[in-house]
Simulated assay, not measured.
Amino acid sequence: MFAAIDIIAAPFVLAATETAEDEGLNPLVRVVPGLMIWTLLAFVVAMLVLRKYAWPQITRILDARQTQIEDSIDAAERTRQEADQLLAEYRERLAEARAQADEIVAKAERAGEVAEREAIDAAKVKREDLLEQTRRDIQAETQAAIQEIRREVADLTVAATEKVTRKTLSAEDQKRLVEEALSELDFSALSGDRRN
């Protein structure tokens, strides 16, 4: 396009240069009416050609570029809004997860405390049961031992009396002697029933 303008304007520029050299003035300063008309005519033709062929293409490319930039800005804005929304949802879910974790920990602590109390209570009950059973066993063993001692004392009393008297006692005399001997002994001290 510029080549066409150069071809059209070249003879005029040469003519103006030769005329300016003849007069001794700088051709840029000197006014040459023919050159000026041809320059204006070349300029108008170049403008018309540019307006008809180049400017619509340039305008279309610039509009497409502007549209692309606006679309990119809109897409970036949408992406930023989506990212903000996702971040807000993430923070909300994280807060919910923390609340659930805190609740689970609190429940576990409460369950642990309840289990500990129940275990302590069960241990106390079992201990009391064992102590009571041990007391009963000791009481039963003590009563059995006392009964055994009574029999031994009765037998020893009868044997001692027979040796001292050198005669055999009747059943009635034996019973009376045994009861007297037993009444003199304090079996309450053996059984742990003695009260101070």
Score class of each variant (00 low, 15 high):
L50V: 06
E109V: 10
T165N: 05
E179I: 00
S72A: 15
Q133R: 14
N196V: 12
P33L: 09
Q174M: 09
E172M: 03
L87G: 13
V178N: 09
I37C: 04
T134G: 10
E89D: 14
S183N: 14
T19K: 15
Q133H: 15
A181E: 02
T59C: 05
E141M: 13
L48G: 01
T39K: 12
V45H: 14
R80M: 13
R80Y: 10
L130G: 04
V45C: 09
A16M: 09
L87V: 01
A4N: 11
I69F: 08
E132Y: 03
A16K: 14
E148G: 05
A99N: 01
R176K: 15
E116R: 15
A3Y: 13
E116Q: 15
T59E: 10
T161P: 00
Y90V: 03
L40W: 09
I61Y: 06
E132T: 10
E152F: 12
P56H: 11
P56E: 04
E113P: 01
V158E: 07
Y53V: 10
D71Y: 06
E152N: 10
G112W: 03
V44N: 04
F2P: 08
K107H: 05
Q100I: 15
M1V: 11
E172G: 02
A189M: 13
L28P: 00
Q139D: 11
V105W: 05
V125N: 04
I138F: 06
E23S: 15
A160T: 08
V114H: 03
Q143H: 04
A97C: 01
L87D: 14
N196K: 12
T142C: 02
Q81V: 11
V114K: 14
T17Q: 10
D63T: 07
V105L: 15
A144V: 14
R151F: 09
P56M: 11
R136A: 05
K126W: 11
E109N: 08
V44D: 02
E180P: 00
D22S: 10
A4I: 09
E162T: 15
E70P: 08
A64C: 01
E18K: 07
V13P: 00
D173S: 11
K126A: 06
E82V: 08
D63A: 02
S191I: 02
D129T: 07
W38T: 09
A181Y: 01
V31Q: 09
R51I: 02
R93F: 07
D22N: 07
I120W: 01
A144P: 08
M47Y: 05
E180W: 07
E180D: 13
Q174K: 15
R136L: 06
Y53G: 00
A83L: 01
R166C: 04
T59K: 05
A75N: 04
R91G: 02
E92S: 12
A76I: 05
T134I: 06
A108Q: 15
Q139T: 11
Q57Y: 03
L182C: 01
A122S: 05
E180M: 13
F12P: 01
P56N: 05
S170E: 05
V125W: 03
A122M: 02
A189K: 09
Q100R: 13
R194S: 12
A75G: 03
S191E: 03
V45Y: 14
I37T: 06
E152V: 14
V105N: 08
S183K: 14
